[in-house]
Design a protein around this nucleic acid. Sequence first.
DNA 1: ATTTTATGTCAGCCATGTTGACTTATTTAT
DNA 2: ATAAATAAGTCAACATGGCTGACATAAAAT
Lengths: 164, 164
Amino acid sequence: MADIKSGTPTLYLRDEELRKGIELLYFAYRDHNGVPDEILAEYGFGRAHHRVLHFVARSPGMAVSELLGILRITKQSLSRVLKELVEKGYVRQETGARDRRQRPLYLTDKGSELERRLSAVQRERMARAYREAGAEAVAGFWRVLFGLIDADGRDAIKTFIEKP
Amino acid sequence: MADIKSGTPTLYLRDEELRKGIELLYFAYRDHNGVPDEILAEYGFGRAHHRVLHFVARSPGMAVSELLGILRITKQSLSRVLKELVEKGYVRQETGARDRRQRPLYLTDKGSELERRLSAVQRERMARAYREAGAEAVAGFWRVLFGLIDADGRDAIKTFIEKP
DNA sequence: ATTTTATGTCAGCCATGTTGACTTATTTAT
DNA sequence: ATAAATAAGTCAACATGGCTGACATAAAAT
């Protein structure tokens, strides 16, 4: 490698560092979702159901259109999982107070219970990772993740995630 | 919230911090793969093809079983995408020198070109995030991601990612 | 000579994304 | 008051990429 002679191995190191981030992100994301996926399967649900449970738990009463905006999927995709969650009694839809076209979403008790169960395993894993890495590392973790998000994605989430 | 009076808002803060990590991970992972997904679609490929291209580029000559071990999918799932990549001339399979049952995998020139195109957009995004966050943040990013990986997953990847 | 291993293949199922077309109820604008 | 825009839902069809189960072939290991 030319770096050995040039004495400026910046490019090589840089590429290694970038590759490392890319691969760690892949493996971490996969394992982060592994146990939840197994739990969801018990209920006949998938990751898409988990996302709905998560964001509805987080912002009770959110409109369907808001959820669509956050998840960035089509309403047909959302409709399928939302329908299942409502029919099976995990999510409840009301009629909007101000705007009666809207259908504010809420978790039922059953929904809250499942959401907590799912989020518990993810929070435990995240907590373990935080603990092992230390507070300073956690701040860096947030900063880099934030930097990976699209500019318009940052806008969309800034209502509930302040810039790290 | 009891925290206001107790003066030890650790639990509340902790939950917020965990949630923040979980959500940032979701958004970052999604956007990290957004542009590559569009490029792959031009070729009639998907994310699974990208993963194969990535790891074969990274470890040329790897056996199919090694790839299966890294990706943790079934051979039937891998077979489908691998077959397409071979048929369309992006991946080449040889016969193992020591063990002739093995089919060492290599990218063709065409495969390398596509892999570079895909990895370029991810590296650029990652580089931007690194730059915005700073070197210290990057180290923390790695440490937390590593901590999110399963114990046996850490074993499996330690051949090519040293513990951050 | 038998068993194990590496790889490949067929067939079918499931989850979850997509596009396109269309309906209904309600609100907003003219 | 009427027309247009918006929020939500629905039907149909298609693609990707996981999965299981069963089976085949060639080569290596015992």
